[in-house]
Amino acid sequence: MPILDQWNLRLDADAILRGQGADPVILRTRRPNLVKIAEQAIGEALTRVYPIVLYERYPVGSILHNSIRLLNGKEITGKAISQYLSSSKEVLVMVCSIGAELEEYASQVMETDMVHGLALYGAGSAAVEALANAACQYFEEQAAQKNWQTTIPLSPGMIGWPIEVGQPQIFSLLDGEQAGVKLTESAIMLPMKSLSLILGLGEDLNQQGTPCDYCSMRDICKYRSDHAKQDA
């Protein structure tokens, strides 16, 4: 299975602060020391992330109620799947991970300094999010070369695709261990700073909506406004 591991990730303090549930604009004025901690976390994080994307493409065979069946006979089920992927000719399944070193370091730091540890966790979340965004953009550009489009990325845990349903489906289509990612019995990916995604590929795809529409965190997520701006 193809692996992409040459990624130049960029992080900024704002993304890290948002990853901790804070508004960067307010904190810059009110608590500059917390912004400094976030900035320090960037440097520490970037030396401890090993971005990798493992992926595979599968032709779609048929569309069923609430599911799609791939030509290899495997099914992907979920309301979000049928809604967003039903017009796709292929699906691209991927796992993005930044490795385990940063989260191990963050755990160690958290034992003695919760604030610093929290910033490092925020940096990890921002890094894997940045990796997934970069990967989606890469595949979108690849698709565009043959006048295809990509759907919005769907992840297990979104509304309409429960995590306990979606994660095993993705890992039945990808050998996650090639990217150093394992799935536990309770559907947690290890390293935890990993994201699994599926994209539909094809012509004239219905592009309505955003990933936020199907995210279970949509009412409280600090990233939502940013996605909305990008999508506008």
Binding site: Q20, G21, A22, L27, R30, M114, V115, L118
Partner: peptide, 11 residues
């Protein structure tokens, strides 16, 4: 206040 501020105060 935000979570990092709460944690900082608690520390």
């Amino acid at each position: 206040i935000f979570l990092p501020e709460l944690m900082d105060a608690a520390e």
